[in-house]
Amino acid sequence: MSLDPEKFEAAVKQEEAYLRKVHPTADDIPGCMSLFDNFLLCHVVNAQVKSLYRYGRMSECSQKLEDFKFCMSNKSLHPEEKRDVWIRRRAEWWATRRLTKSSEDIWDIRTEPLKNYPPSLLENVDPSNAIA
């Protein structure tokens, strides 16, 4: 499935802005050891059984390994540069996730509130049933 480049870049910008707020300093991004731990935890029996129950297949841990390898490839960067490339990578991942459909997507994102919701209590009152 191909993504519209303009929508994708707009989504990446939104995700980058959000991630920069959530991870304001270089110390806030995960370290390589925590990413390696996440990769190892993906292979434990509990995670495999949960994945089998939820999705009907074993856990796919390749993305977690790729995250660890990406972190290791950035070890020589300045901490702020490392944060920037990590944020860009995560923003691209989230943008792709947002713009493609998955079996987990059951709700559409609402951009504005529903009209006349919640309904007024007076709208639902039948005057013929009112207690005098």
Rank of each mutant, 00 (worst) to 15 (best):
F70H: 02
K115D: 13
E66G: 05
N74A: 06
R89M: 11
F36W: 05
E104G: 08
I106Q: 02
S103R: 03
Y53N: 09
A91Q: 01
S62I: 01
W107A: 03
F39I: 01
W107Q: 05
I106N: 07
R54A: 01
K50T: 13
D108S: 12
E80I: 05
I106V: 00
Q48K: 10
W86S: 00
H78F: 03
D67E: 14
V85C: 05
K64V: 12
W93Q: 11
S73C: 06
L99D: 15
L40E: 06
C71V: 04
Y55I: 09
S51D: 08
W93V: 15
E104R: 03
K115W: 13
E112A: 06
E81P: 12
H78D: 07
P119W: 05
K64T: 11
R98V: 09
I106D: 01
L40W: 10
K82G: 01
L35Y: 03
H78M: 14
P119I: 11
Q48M: 12
F39H: 09
D67A: 13
L41C: 03
W93F: 14
E92R: 10
L65I: 02
K75C: 10
P113M: 08
S76R: 08
K75G: 07
A47I: 04
S73K: 11
N116V: 04
I109F: 13
S120N: 14
S120R: 11
L114V: 12
F36Y: 08
S51Q: 10
V49I: 07
R97N: 15
D37T: 01
W94K: 14
S102V: 11
P113L: 05
W94T: 07
C71P: 07
R57P: 03
R110V: 11
L52K: 11
E80P: 04
E60W: 00
N46V: 10
L35A: 02
M72I: 12
K50F: 06
S51R: 13
E60A: 00
W86D: 02
M58Q: 15
S62N: 04
V44A: 02
P118G: 02
H43N: 08
S120M: 10
W107H: 14
D37W: 00
R110Q: 08
Q63Y: 10
I87F: 00
R54P: 00
K64W: 10
G56H: 02
S120G: 06
E104Q: 13
T100Y: 03
C42N: 01
S103N: 12
V49D: 10
D105V: 00
A47G: 04
C61P: 04
R57F: 02
S103D: 05
C42L: 00
D84R: 01
E92V: 04
Y55M: 08
